[in-house]
Simulated scan of single mutants.
Amino acid sequence: MMVIGFNDELLHIVGVSLNVSVWSTLAACILGVPAGFAIGIGRFRGRQTCITFFNTMLALPTVVIGLLVYSVLSRRGVFGALGWLYTQKAMIVGQIILITPIVIAFTIAAVSRIDERYRRTALTLGASGWQAAMVILHEARFSIMAAVVAAFGRVISEIGISMMLGGNAKGFTRTMTTAMALEYDKGEFVLALALGLVLLAISLGVNMLLGYVQGRTRR
């Protein structure tokens, strides 16, 4: 009933989650897709080290990220004067750090799977280096889109960073996952269950949208 009736508290919590998740995913894509693409098509010394580093970063615990960003944004931290701690901005910063390696690693994998003959053929036909790179990017677009969806799914279901950097303040930084944890601790399962259903619905909707776009593009 809470979901059907569009409870105000539920809607606000969902809004905070979407705001933080969308902005962090957008920033991670702006940083991660070009970096992953450059590493994927590049042939330079230390390339394999870069790939290994970002693959390792996939397993970076959220608690470590939370502590790192907390130490930087706390009053005694380097950026403490910004006053971002326990705000949505702090949560976005932490989540960008969390999912940027996902975008980079998945983009590298997507680009690396493209046959090198695409690039050589484009160059043979008179394409510039930039145009040849765009050919590879076009061929890898579906896998890169999947990387973006994976990053969004990771960040919208995240709880550790949101709790540590946002403080779970009602009306300001309470997300779906932190609210679910709080309601569970209180023994109140109605709101927690409603939020869980909304979270699943959002994840399903995003994946259905990806499938629709991929299907339309391949026609």
Rank of each mutant, 00 (worst) to 15 (best):
A127Q: 07
P61A: 13
M57R: 04
V69T: 07
Y118R: 08
A81E: 13
V149C: 11
L73Q: 02
F106C: 10
A122P: 05
Y70N: 12
I65M: 03
V64Y: 13
L123S: 08
L82K: 12
R75P: 00
I144Y: 00
R117F: 11
R119C: 07
P101W: 02
N55C: 11
W130A: 08
V135A: 05
I136S: 01
L82W: 15
V63N: 10
I102A: 01
I97W: 01
I108T: 05
M57T: 05
L73I: 12
I97P: 00
S143W: 00
S112V: 07
E139R: 13
S74C: 14
H138T: 14
G153L: 06
D115N: 15
D115W: 11
P61F: 09
I108M: 09
L98P: 01
F142T: 10
A147E: 04
V111W: 01
V93R: 02
E139Y: 11
A132Q: 08
M134D: 06
A105P: 04
G153C: 12
G129D: 14
Q88G: 04
I144H: 00
A147Y: 05
I96A: 10
P101C: 06
G83W: 06
V72W: 07
V78R: 07
F54K: 06
Y118F: 15
P101E: 05
V63T: 14
A132L: 12
Q95I: 09
V78H: 07
V111S: 04
A147D: 06
T121V: 14
Y118D: 03
G66D: 06
L82A: 14
T124C: 10
Q131D: 13
A150F: 11
A122T: 12
I108C: 07
A140I: 05
Q88L: 06
Q88D: 08
T121H: 11
T121Y: 11
T100D: 05
T56F: 15
R113I: 05
S74H: 07
H138A: 14
I144V: 15
V149P: 03
I97G: 00
T87W: 11
A110H: 03
F106H: 08
S71T: 14
R119V: 09
I114W: 02
L85C: 04
W130M: 11
L82R: 12
V149D: 07
I102W: 00
F54T: 03
Q131P: 02
D115S: 15
I92G: 00
V78A: 12
I136P: 00
M91L: 10
F79H: 04
L125W: 08
A110I: 04
E139P: 00
S71G: 12
I144F: 02
V69Q: 02
R117M: 13
T56C: 12
F152H: 02
R75E: 09
I102D: 00
E116K: 14
W84I: 08
Y118E: 05
Q88A: 06
L73A: 09
T62S: 15
I97S: 01
L85A: 03
H138F: 09
R141Q: 13
I96K: 07
G77E: 05
R141P: 02
Y70R: 06
A81V: 13
L82Q: 12
S74D: 13
A109F: 02
L73P: 00
L67Q: 05
Y118P: 01
G126K: 04
A140Y: 02
M145L: 15
L68S: 13
